[in-house]
Write a protein that binds this DNA or RNA. Structure first.
Lengths: 324, 324
DNA sequence: CCATCTAGGTCGGATCCTGGCCTAGATCGC
DNA sequence: GCGATCTAGGCCAGGATCCGACCTAGATGG
C-alpha cells in the first residue's frame, strides 16, 4: 500500500476496498490505510455524506461494505476486470441490438480513453479470439475504431480516415464527425466532409486507419433536425437489405420469445403458427436464425433466401452422409 | 452541481469531468466546481500525484483531459453507461468463452453490488430482450444469479438455494461456496454442503432462488489442491457432452479463424481441408456453427449429430419450397 | 454477561487548503 | 511577429480542516 497521506487518496482506496464483495472490520481498514480507527470512521462518514451508502453490520463479526445506493459510485477495477469489461463492451457494440448501443459506445469510449496501454493489448487479443465466434455479421465493425469515432464525436474533433466506398474505390477523408447512428445491424457515421463541403454518411466498417486530429471545431448545424432521420433516408442506398416474409409453425408468443429483440413484425395466424416480417442484411444470418428456431417454417420472400436455404440444406444432408 | 465543499468530493467530480472524451479549459472546470482556477490547477496536480495522468494541451484553446496511464483510474459512469456495462457483462458471462470469465464475473459482481435498484430493473429488462437472441445454449444461466453466487464465494458467505438435480428431484441446499468454475460452456459451483457434510458440485443453471445468508464462515480446505481439477473429474457425470469429429473442406488456418476461440483441435489434412475434433453440449449449437462456416464438411461422429443435421437439412429444404 | 464491533461527542495542535497575486512558457490566430 | 489565451507553478497569510486520543453508548453473538 502507498503512503495514503492525503484524505482524498484515502477515500479512493477506501472505496476500492469496500467494493470488494466482503465485509471489512474497521480495525483492518485502519490498518490497510495506515490511519487510526477513528479516522476510518470519519472517512466512512464522509463517504456517506457524498452519497455512497456504506452499510455496517454491528456487533461482533461486524464490518463495513458498500451497498447499492441512489447514484453510481466510481468503479475501481483491477486490471483483469477492466479488460473483461472492455471485451464485453466490444462484443456488445460489435453486435448491437437492444437500444443501449449509444450508451455502450459511450462507456467503451470512456474506458478506452483511460485504459493503460498494456491492458489495451490484452483487450485486443481477447477481442480477436471472441470476435470470430460470433461471425454472424459479414463485416463486423472494429469496436476499437468505433470507440475512436465516438470519442471524436464527443470531443468535436476533426477525424481523418481511409474510406472504401460501395464501388470499391478508396479515398482519404477529413471530416467533422457529428453523430454515430445504429441502423439495422450496422454503424454509420454522420459527418461533415470538409473537403467536399457537404454532409456525408459513412459505414464505420468501411472506415480504416482512423486518426483523431486533435483539432477541435465548433459543432456544425445539421440541415435537418434529426440526424437519425437524415441517416435512415440515405441509408438504404448504402446497405442492401433483405425483406423477409415467412410463416413459422410456432405460436406467436413463443416465436417472439425465441427471436428476442428486434424480431421485426410477428402476426399470429392461428394458435400454433404465425407470420414473420423482418429485415436483415445477410442471408447467412437470416437462415441461421430461422433454423435455430427449432420449428418448421416456410419462407416466402426473398428468393435469395430460398436459394440459400437450399444450399444450406443440401450441405447439411451431404455432411450427414458418412464417408471414409 | 453540489456544494463541492471538500477537496475529496471535488477530486471525484473532477475525475468524472475529465473522463468525458473532450477537453476542459481550466476556467470552465473552476466554474463547474465552484472554486478558483488556481485551486483547479492544484487539484489537477493532486490527481497527477495520485497517478492519474491528466494531460494538458497548452496555448489558446488548450485544456485538460484524462489520458491512459499506468493504473486504472476509478471509472465514473452515468446511469446509462452503468446499465450498458452490466448488460454487456451479463451476456459475456452467460455465453462464456475466452478465458476471462472469472474476471468478467468478478466485475459483474462488483458492479451489481453497487448498482442502484432503479438501474437494476433496466438491466433486467435489457437482459431479457437480448438474452433470447443468443439462444445457442439450451439453458442459459442467469447472470444475476451467477453474480450473487460469485459474491457469496468472494465474501465467504453461506448460500441458500433450491436445486434441481439431474433426475428432476428438487431440494433446498445450504452450502459454503468455494469456487465457481467454468467447464465446457457451463458454470459449476463447487461448495461444501453443510447439511450433507461433503463437497458437492452444482450446475449453476439448475440453481434457483439464491439467498446469500450474510453469515460469514472461515474458508474450508479442499480435499484436493486444485478446485478445477476436482470439478472436471466429477463434471462429466453431470454434463453429457458430444464429442465431434468432422472433416472440413477449408484450410486449417481459415477454419481456425472462423471458429475462433476454443475450436477444439484442428488438424490440417491437405492445403484445403482439415479435421476438427471438439466437444460441445448441444446439437443445435454444433450444427449451427458448422453450417455457419460456409464450407462443405463431413461429420463422422457423433451419430446424434448426423441425425440432427438430417433433420435440419430436411427442414431447410422444406422451408425453401414456396407454398401458398 | 462479556468480548467485539459500530457510532459518535469533544479537544488541542498540527496540517492543509484556499484565493490572490505574481512570472514563465507554449501555442494559435491575426 | 505580436498579442491573446491558455497551462504551470512559486509565494504568502488567514482560515478551515484533519488527526489521534480518549471517552460513552448501543448492538450483537457466543
Amino acid at each position: 500500500m502507498d503512503a495514503m497521506s492525503t484524505p482524498s487518496a484515502r477515500l479512493l482506496s477506501l472505496l476500492s476496498l469496500l467494493q470488494t464483495p466482503r465485509e471489512w472490520p474497521g480495525s483492518e481498514l485502519a490498518d490497510r490505510l495506515g490511519v487510526s480507527p477513528r479516522t476510518v470512521r470519519r472517512d466512512v462518514d464522509r463517504l456517506r455524506e457524498l452519497g455512497y451508502p456504506v452499510e455496517a453490520s454491528m456487533g461482533a463479526a461486524g464490518g463495513y461494505r458498500l451497498a447499492a445506493g441512489k447514484a453510481m459510485p466510481p468503479l475501481l477495477l483491477d486490471d483483469e476486470e477492466a479488460v473483461a469489461i472492455a471485451v464485453a463492451l466490444s462484443t456488445a457494440v460489435g453486435k448491437p441490438v437492444s437500444g443501449i448501443e449509444q450508451a455502450s459506445l459511450r462507456a467503451l469510449a470512456k474506458l478506452e480513453q483511460v485504459l493503460p496501454s498494456r491492458l489495451r493489448h490484452r483487450v485486443g487479443a481477447f477481442r480477436a479470439a471472441t470476435e470470430s465466434l460470433f461471425t454472424e455479421s459479414a463485416t463486423p465493425v472494429d469496436p476499437h475504431e468505433l470507440a475512436v469515432a465516438a470519442a471524436a464525436v464527443a470531443g468535436h474533433e476533426r477525424l481523418r480516415f481511409a474510406y472504401q466506398s460501395g464501388d470499391g474505390s478508396r479515398t482519404r477523408r477529413l471530416v467533422e464527425p457529428h453523430r454515430l447512428v445504429l441502423a439495422g445491424r450496422r454503424w454509420y457515421l454522420l459527418a461533415y466532409d470538409t473537403e467536399r463541403d457537404d454532409w456525408r454518411i459513412f459505414r464505420v466498417d468501411r472506415m480504416t486507419r482512423l486518426q483523431p486530429t486533435g483539432v477541435r471545431v465548433p459543432p456544425r448545424e445539421l440541415p435537418e433536425k434529426d440526424a437519425a432521420a437524415f441517416v435512415t433516408r440515405r441509408m438504404y442506398s448504402l446497405a442492401p437489405t433483405y425483406e423477409v416474409r415467412a410463416t413459422l409453425r410456432l405460436p406467436a408468443a413463443q416465436a417472439a420469445e425465441r427471436l428476442g429483440a428486434a424480431p421485426g413484425e410477428l402476426r399470429s395466424i392461428d394458435e400454433n403458427s404465425c407470420e414473420l416480417h423482418g429485415r436483415a442484411d445477410t442471408l447467412e444470418w437470416l437462415a441461421s436464425r430461422l433454423l435455430m428456431l427449432g420449428c418448421e417454417f416456410q419462407v416466402h420472400e426473398p428468393p435469395e433466401l430460398l436459394a440459400h436455404l437450399r444450399v444450406v440444406g443440401d450441405r447439411a444432408l451431404r455432411a450427414a452422409v458418412p464417408r471414409p
